[in-house]
């Protein structure tokens, strides 16, 4: 079973919800940190790295002695990763999406493909659960292959994906194959606006999902009204509590620093499980 925890923007407490759910689920759970540009679940789930794998992507290499300088590859590449001043083209790996098109179009057979490392996938035995962390190398702009590799490395029966912020390719790559998505939001106009955008993406992908309201204030019905109107289920509310913010700042788990919150996380987890098996 695979549950993704997502939110439109950063800073809604998404990672916090994901790590606390993983710990509640117990030793057999695996948390996959798919926010590969800024992975930070490891701040809460410390442990020894048991294995590290490099993730790479096929990118072109030009055999200059075969290249006729025809520019076919340069014209093809829609990402401007190849440019030419007349002779063999220059290649800029940062811009390459690894589509392989340049090799296909080269009439001289001058392009071969080589592996370019994009980042790493680490397995961490965090004791309370397993953490699989994808980490993009600094300066690399293609997170999707690292996300896919991190997801593939999680083999347990119960897996939680901590999704990256935003609503573009990295989020979509994370959500694919998940059985259920938990959307974490805040009861503010900003939170609602980002929630709407994420819901649009989820509907386009035909995913099952529910909402958790973080920093919830009893008096505020903004998110409830929206969810009611859109027939979206609210699976739980984590109250606005300064102690939670302080625990987070210190890198501590809510369910450990404030055990009173354990039943709440357990009930959110159980609600997710029910929705998936239903």
């Amino acid at each position: 079973m695979r549950i993704a925890v997502a939110s439109g923007k950063g800073g809604t407490g998404k990672t916090s919800v994901a790590v606390n759910l993983a710990v509640i689920a117990g030793r057999t759970a695996t948390l996959v940190d798919c926010d590969v540009e800024e992975p930070n679940a490891h701040i809460f789930l410390k442990g020894d790295v048991s294995s590290t794998d490099t993730v790479s992507m096929s990118v072109p290499a030009i055999e200059e002695n075969r290249c006729t300088g025809c520019r076919a590859c340069v014209e093809f590449c829609g990402f401007n990763a190849l440019i030419s001043f007349g002779g063999p083209p220059l290649f800029f790996p940062d811009l390459c999406h690894g589509c392989g098109g340049c090799r296909l179009v080269c009439p001289a057979g001058a392009i071969v493909e080589v592996a370019r490392p994009l980042g790493e996938v680490r397995r961490i035995d965090a004791g309370r659960c397993t953490l699989v962390e994808g980490c993009l190398e600094v300066g690399v702009s293609s997170p999707v292959p690292v996300i896919k590799a991190a997801k593939a490395a999680a083999d347990g029966d119960f897996v939680i994906y901590d999704a990256p912020p935003g609503t573009s390719c990295p989020l979509v790559a994370t959500l694919r194959g998940a059985d259920y998505v938990l959307l974490v939001t805040e009861p503010t106009p900003f939170g609602l606006s980002d929630l709407r955008l994420t819901v649009e993406v989820l509907r386009q992908m035909n995913m099952e999902f529910g909402v958790v309201i973080n920093r919830s204030m009893r008096s505020e019905s903004l998110i409830h009204d929206y969810c009611h109107h859109e027939a979206i289920e609210v699976l739980g509310e984590i109250p606005e509590d300064r102690r939670i913010a302080e625990a987070y700042a210190a890198g501590r788990l809510i369910v450990e620093a404030l055990p009173g919150y354990r039943p709440l996380f357990r009930s959110i987890l159980e609600a997710c499980l029910e929705r998936v098996t239903a």
Partner: peptide, 8 residues
Amino acid sequence: LACEGCGV
């Protein structure tokens, strides 16, 4: 949502 627009 998956198409990156490479043209292959």
